[in-house]
Structures are given as structure tokens and as C-alpha cells.
């Protein structure tokens, strides 16, 4: 019995000695329990139209200028749609690494929008892995254009709300995918379609093909009673990142640039060629003190 035990101990001893020869650090590496957050699933806080699983860092201000042009199939007389432009200007701000707020104003219906985006889980690898990132975005839109003097809807009648869940995963360093179901509500059904509540199931993704460029797409399938003439928004494009700027160039059938407008008010059919060119321009500013130097220089 003693012999068996000593042989066993000897063997484990040999294994240990052998392991030490490989490199002094190799046996220690598992001991240092570290969890790394997975970041950079998308280059921007929007895939194209939809919220992405990315958040702004604390004290980051993201100034966003969005353009959607006319339909390309209008031909050269309309300069392939570039003669017409619809725009949204806005700014997002990272209160913490987990809470981002934003607002914007679109030219279409002179509509204001604001949102709060909260990250509940961030994908992580290592000691305590988390498989996906979970984000919830909630917002409201209010159109302010006065079309007729006789019809004056109240603020409540001009407001729509949305709540969106985003589940996303950076699968490899190049490929990220996300699902983004959304609920829209308005006290006036014609703001969001044919009923007060509209549900859409959406998804998006990115395939990075260089360090600073990626192919992106997002789609939202509008469920429930279809309003005649309304379509589901599909967009595909490329992201180009240059330091603090991200340019998102894309083709889409959607002209709206807030959640109500692109989910519930897309009238063009992508596969009929009713495609528009558009771009999102994002510029990040860091609002806060410059870091103190640690005096190594």
C-alpha cells in the first residue's frame, strides 16, 4: 500500500517538475483569475438605424449627424436621390459606462426624440464569462410640425414611445450579431401604424474586413396587422472608423432616423429597388479633465 502511494506521489512529483521546465509562468497563469470584458462589438452605438450593444464610455459625447437621401432609382435627373435630403441632428452622452442618454431632431415632421439606454450585462471572457451583452433602450418621439390650423393635436397625441431590448454577441473579432426586438406605442394609432402598439423583431450584425472598416446590416420585421403600403426597414452598409470619427455609409429603404419613423413609417420596398443612400456621421468628444501625468517623462 505504502509503495503504491509513494509511487503515486513520485509520479505527481515528476509531473510537477516536468511542468516547471516548460516555463516558470505557465503553471501560474490559471491562478490569476481575471475576467475581461468584451468590447468593440460594433464601431458605433448604432448598427445603422438600430441601437447596437455598444455603449458610450463615461463622459463621452457623441455628436451624430444623419442624412438620408432620395431614392436612387429616380435617376440622373434627381442626381440619384442626392438632390433630396432628410436629416437628423443629435447628441448622445455617456453618464456612466452603463447609462447613455441621447436626443435628436429630425427634419421629417420636425420630430424630436430622446432616449435612455442602459447596459445590464456586458459580454465577458475569462474567469467569470458572460456569453452576451444585454441592453435596454427606451425613448420617446414628439412631432412638432403644424400642418393644419384646424387640427391641433395635443402633445400627448403627437408623442410615441418605444422600448427595445438588444441582445448581442461579439462572436469573433470580426463577426458580431445582435437581436433587437422593439415595441412602439402611441395614443394615436396613425403615429405608429394601424394599431396603438406595434411590435417588430429585429436583428443586425457586422463583419469587419479591415481593422477600421466593417460591413454592417440591420433589419426589423414589423409584426401584427400590416398597414397597407408600409414595409419592414432593411439597411446595409459599411462603417469606416478614423480615430474619433465613425462614418456609416449605407443603403436602406427607410428614410426615418428615429425608432418611430424607421420602424413604423418605412414605405419603400428594398427589393423593388426603392433604395436610398444615407450616412451617419459620429464624432466622439471626451468631456472631462485631461489625465494627470504620472511623471515618467
Amino acid at each position: 500500500m505504502i509503495k503504491i502511494i509513494s509511487v503515486f506521489i513520485l509520479c505527481t512529483g515528476f509531473v510537477k517538475l516536468h511542468a516547471q521546465e516548460k516555463g516558470m509562468l505557465d503553471s501560474m497563469i490559471q491562478d490569476n483569475r481575471q475576467t475581461q470584458k468584451v468590447s468593440g462589438a460594433f464601431k458605433s452605438t448604432r448598427v445603422i438605424n438600430a441601437h447596437s450593444v455598444e455603449m458610450l464610455g463615461k463622459k463621452n459625447l457623441d455628436v451624430r449627424i444623419l442624412h438620408r437621401f432620395g431614392m436612387i432609382n429616380q435617376g440622373i435627373k434627381q442626381f440619384f436621390g442626392l438632390d433630396q435630403a432628410s436629416m437628423r441632428m443629435g447628441a448622445d452622452y455617456g453618464i456612466t459606462d452603463y447609462i447613455t442618454v441621447g436626443f435628436g431632431r429630425s427634419t421629417f415632421r420636425k420630430e424630436l426624440d430622446a432616449f435612455v439606454k442602459i447596459r445590464f450585462l456586458q459580454q465577458a471572457t475569462g474567469y467569470k464569462p458572460i456569453p452576451v451583452s444585454v441592453i435596454v433602450a427606451g425613448g420617446a418621439t414628439l412631432w412638432t410640425e403644424q400642418s393644419f390650423d384646424s387640427i391641433q393635436p395635443t402633445i400627448g397625441e403627437r408623442t410615441s414611445y418605444y422600448l427595445q431590448l438588444v441582445l448581442g454577441k461579439k462572436i469573433t473579432s470580426a463577426l458580431s450579431l445582435q437581436a433587437s426586438p422593439i415595441v412602439l406605442y402611441s395614443s394615436r394609432a396613425d403615429n405608429v401604424g394601424s394599431s396603438n402598439t406595434v411590435v417588430a423583431l429585429g436583428g443586425g450584425g457586422r463583419i469587419k474586413f479591415t481593422k477600421r472598416m466593417a460591413f454592417t446590416f440591420d433589419y426589423h420585421h414589423v409584426l401584427g396587422p400590416k398597414t397597407p403600403g408600409y414595409r419592414s426597414p432593411l439597411s446595409a452598409g459599411i462603417d469606416i472608423e478614423t480615430g474619433g470619427h465613425v462614418f456609416q455609409l449605407h443603403f436602406s429603404n427607410a428614410v426615418g432616423m428615429n425608432e418611430r419613423a424607421y420602424i413604423a413609417q418605412t414605405t419603400d420596398e428594398f427589393f423593388n429597388g426603392d433604395i436610398r443612400f444615407g450616412f451617419n456621421l459620429s464624432r466622439l468628444f471626451f468631456i472631462g479633465k485631461k489625465s494627470k501625468s504620472s511623471g515618467v517623462y
Binding site: Q36, S39, G57, G94, S173, G244, F286
Partner: peptide, 27 residues
């Protein structure tokens, strides 16, 4: 003497710098 360090464990003041460091420069 041996040292080993995880690149993703480097912390920056600015989240954007940290992302660019990991994504664009250090891969």
C-alpha cells in the same frame, strides 16, 4: 525572469482610447 501581461487588462481614462488600443493597434 519572466513577465506576462494581458493586453485587455490595460486601463485607460478614456474608453475610446482603450477600444482603439485593443481593436486597431494591439489586436
Amino acid at each position: 525572469l519572466e513577465f506576462s501581461v494581458l493586453i485587455k487588462g490595460f486601463e485607460f481614462d478614456r474608453a475610446l482610447m482603450q477600444e482603439h488600443f485593443n481593436e486597431n493597434y494591439m489586436e
